[in-house]
């Protein structure tokens, strides 16, 4: 990509996430604080929409996810999952509905990611890719 296209791609990605993530975050918080499944799931839906929009933007600009993007995304996802698990275990006000909202939401995001990988790389290649990573990890001292 030439410099201006790269800048436009970055703008599109940042605008996309600034928009979807901020509203998604607020809806998820509302869902958990009021034990309101519609709000909570709407929040996770916003994150899924942001992910799909990111994929569409990448396709338009003819690029894939960069390593920093993957790292940032995974980090945020893992931190959020840990927060969710911690809340489930240690926060007495965290009810059954909240757990269901979280499970459904995080599953939807993971499902979305798996579907993306499978569509993009195919089932066999996706498995091979994970297998290679696994083998590489085992070989490392």
């Amino acid at each position: 990509m030439i410099a201006s296209e790269s800048s436009e791609h970055r703008l599109a990605v940042m605008t996309n996430w600034a928009f979807f993530a901020s509203f998604g975050f607020c809806f998820v918080l509302s869902g958990f604080s009021e034990s309101a499944p519609i709000s909570g799931l709407a929040g996770f839906a916003a994150f899924v929409a942001g992910f799909i929009a990111h994929v569409v933007i990448n396709r338009i600009f003819g690029v894939g996810f960069t390593n920093p993007q993957v790292a940032l995304g995974l980090t945020i996802f893992i931190v959020c999952v840990f927060c969710f698990i911690a809340s489930t275990l240690f926060d007495p006000s965290f009810g059954e509905t909240d757990v269901l909202i979280g499970l459904a939401g995080f599953s939807a995001i993971m499902g979305c990611f798996i579907v993306y990988v499978m569509i993009n790389y195919g089932i066999r290649e996706s498995y091979a890719m994970m297998h290679r990573l696994h083998v590489q990890e085992r070989r490392q001292p």
Binding site: F23, C26, L29, S30, S33
Partner: peptide, 9 residues
């Protein structure tokens, strides 16, 4: 009053 994060956004 009940969703201050939404108010902020």
């Amino acid at each position: 009053d009940h969703a201050p994060w939404f108010m902020g956004l």
